[in-house]
């Protein structure tokens, strides 16, 4: 009996590992096929080109801004100073940061001549794009939450002005493509507002902010519906208990309803914000250099589209995965209460 059970168990385990094996074979088959196909069309992979689009070393030149002769090079290493003498007197160029000095004593110097160089690490185009995507998404999330909270409360208000405004807003925003809305913000509203600003002597607002506004109003509409559903899911008895104690409507909302609704709002909210991060890729269409646009620029320079599109997808995955981790952590925190 015991023996039979063991065999059964073993059979079950081996079957399990067999199917795990099938999974990995499937994954490798897909990757292999893709690679084989690219080899057929003679695509040459250059994965080693990718890292420098994350961070790279830029050469910084220390240049002369006068004509003359190198009179002396004093000191060594960090203390090195190149002294250039001209008819109007002499000037010293400190070489504190320089890794190499490119001139010798007695060299003739023209303005713009490189005296020394050093290298500086700087974020590459992909990292900049990712940072911008993150920044834009965060702004849009914060404003989206604000809009959504107010919208959700207005949506369930008895006041028809508030309620109908909320309904109209939600329906309009949800009923048209985000790309069209981004174009309206950029080509209509931005032009209008910026021209007015210029006319009255103010400076223009950067395209970035119109992009953020487009994303925030878009997300806000969905958050409005999520908040409304969350609030309405709280039993009416909660409001009644709060009001019967003498709390005002807003007090009942703030102390009793919203904290409870929050727990139910959080999971769909997380989904919404993950969509937002992905949707921010559309901002590339209005010259905002977020991750997708940055990827396209990197491809124009490197001529390696396959590597960069895959990299781009993975970077989005990193962002969305991190966000969903943060939200899961918050959910667990709230559940413990």
């Amino acid at each position: 009996m015991d023996f039979l059970a063991k065999i059964e168990e073993l059979r079950y385990r081996s079957a399990y590992f067999l199917w795990v094996g099938v999974f990995f074979i499937g994954v490798f088959a897909v990757i292999g096929t893709l690679y084989y196909a690219t080899a057929k069309i003679d695509y040459s992979w250059h994965w080693f080109d990718v890292p420098k689009y994350f961070v790279n070393q830029e050469r910084i030149d220390i240049k002369a801004d006068m004509e003359g002769v190198v009179e002396a090079i004093n000191g060594k290493g960090k203390n090195a100073v190149v002294i250039v003498k001209s008819d109007d007197g002499s000037k010293s160029y400190p070489m504190a940061q320089a890794e190499e000095i490119w001139v010798y004593k007695g060299d003739f110097i023209a303005p713009g001549k490189v005296l020394g160089v050093y290298h500086k690490w700087q974020p590459g185009i992909l990292l900049q794009g990712m940072w911008l995507t993150l920044k834009v998404s965060m702004y849009a999330i914060v404003f989206g939450i604000l809009i959504g909270m107010l919208g959700g409360i207005a949506r369930i208000s008895k006041n028809p002005a508030l309620k109908w405004s909320a309904i109209t807003y939600v329906e309009i925003v949800r009923g048209s493509p985000l790309l069209v809305q981004i174009f309206i913000w950029y080509f209509v509203l931005a032009t209008l507002v910026n021209q007015l600003l210029l006319r009255y002597g103010f400076s223009e607002i950067d395209a970035l902010y119109y992009g953020v506004a487009a994303l925030a109003t878009f997300t806000g509409a969905y958050v409005t519906e999520i908040v409304r559903a969350g609030i309405q899911s709280i039993h009416r008895g909660q409001t009644e208990a709060a009001r019967s104690l003498g709390m005002t409507g807003p007090q009942a909302m703030f102390y009793i309803i919203l904290p409870q609704a929050m727990r139910r709002i959080l999971p769909p909210l997380a989904g919404q914000f993950i969509s937002l991060i992905k949707d921010s890729s559309l901002l590339g269409m209005i010259a905002i250099r977020e991750l997708t646009k940055a990827t396209r620029e990197a491809i124009t320079i490197s001529l390696s589209p396959y590597e960069f599109w895959f990299t781009c997808a993975i970077l989005y995955l990193v962002l969305t995965f991190t966000l969903s981790m943060v939200v899961q952590y918050m959910e667990r925190k709230m559940a413990i209460q």
Binding site: G237, A241, S244, L245, G246, M247, Y255, I256, P259, Q260
Partner: peptide, 30 residues
């Protein structure tokens, strides 16, 4: 309403607050 206490069939306690907080909240707020 602050002068008129009400007790419901379904209790309607605030589930996100402890017993103590349930009793102190309105005292402080109202």
């Amino acid at each position: 309403r602050a002068e008129v206490g009400m007790v419901f069939q379904s209790f309607n306690l605030f589930p996100h607050k402890t017993v103590l907080e349930n009793i102190t909240l309105a005292q402080k707020v109202v």
